[in-house]
Design a protein around this nucleic acid. Sequence first.
DNA 1: CAACATACCAACCGGTTGGTATGTAACTGT
DNA 2: ACAGTTACATACCAACCGGTTGGTATGTTG
Lengths: 218, 218
Amino acid sequence: MSRPISLNHSTSAKAKLLNAAVRLVREKGFNGTSVDDLCTAAGVTKGAFFHYFPSKDALGVAAANHWSETTSALFSQAAYHSPADPLDRVFAYLDFRADLIAGDIPEFTCLVGTMVQEMHETSPAIRAACEASISGHAETLVADIATALTTHGVTGIDPHALALHTQAVLQGGFILAKAKGDPAVARQSVAHLKHYIALLCGVPVPERKELIDGNDNR
Amino acid sequence: MSRPISLNHSTSAKAKLLNAAVRLVREKGFNGTSVDDLCTAAGVTKGAFFHYFPSKDALGVAAANHWSETTSALFSQAAYHSPADPLDRVFAYLDFRADLIAGDIPEFTCLVGTMVQEMHETSPAIRAACEASISGHAETLVADIATALTTHGVTGIDPHALALHTQAVLQGGFILAKAKGDPAVARQSVAHLKHYIALLCGVPVPERKELIDGNDNR
DNA sequence: CAACATACCAACCGGTTGGTATGTAACTGT
DNA sequence: ACAGTTACATACCAACCGGTTGGTATGTTG
């Protein structure tokens, strides 16, 4: 009901603006990206922008929601769900996240993490949309974390809190990577997180290409 | 040699601008804070601003350096250095950091973490100043971490990488706190980090008021 | 006391900002 | 066929942006 069925344009101006927002905001931040920047990048005019979004703030909210949708599609289709053991699925998730941390910094960092840091005090709507995105993604990890903990006899750890901790490590890794201009430090932090969960569950740390002994960094 | 000895003003315009920058940038971000905002908050005019700083960018660099100086003074004088055992000093550091995470969000979050997230691609000078601040602080932890690891027979962990990981956890905790509008989630992540280091060194997790079993959060 | 430097200030500048008012071509329901 | 709606484009605006100007009051130095 919301979308017209026949659309002779290859891509709608709305979708192009949303994709431009994801790209530009990750690169320059929300306040650092002007409406004109977005329109130029999307190849549309300001009329189109304000036809679809009542304000720049509203575009920020829509971009955060768009980010939630595209990332949840990416993660739900990823291969890390395949291991039979829940703890192995958690490890596979972290390996997947580490593998994503590559290339140029704006390509792998988090849109909503970037936006919420700038806008948390100034735009309640953007803050809420970013919070929903982060917490929603963390929630997808809770089931595996919870069963992994109980099957390994770990008590006293709230799986929700641990899921949020994984997101904190990732977000923090992104900031360090931005500061150093190098993704390696973010991958290192994910490796430490993996080590933590292995120690928690009393299993040997699953070896992988990235070593925690940092010849990779510094 | 750098500072004039006689200064009849109670505080110089430069210092007031720097303090205003620390406050406003943490609240609204670097691009979200205008030069006029800073001047109004500092109670000076734009003429004074551009007398001391050749550009807004230069103020960003100066604010990052100012942040490095004030925080290093705070941390070097803090009580967490007093325990005899190096591992206890690391735990005390993390307790100290957790205690700092209280009150309104702009009051405990990190200036350079906020700035570098926005400016890493657009201002190389600000990025470098923020990187120096973060890495410089991490470096102050390396000696204690290194001796703690060796005295507990932990091998294969680079103390530099672990020091940077502690900063990643803190920075990530700040982002989650901004998203949720609640410091509790950041304290939880620090508690998980403390748990990790305890497990790494094979010591019991030091109990403290904040429990990892999160009745605090969510 | 002359010569100069420092520490500001008020007014202003061109360009950019988010946002609006109006126009119009294409599509849709009847 | 035609009225109405959707999907944009063009042109524009007031406010604000970072930065400059020309000036003054207060030192400091020889």
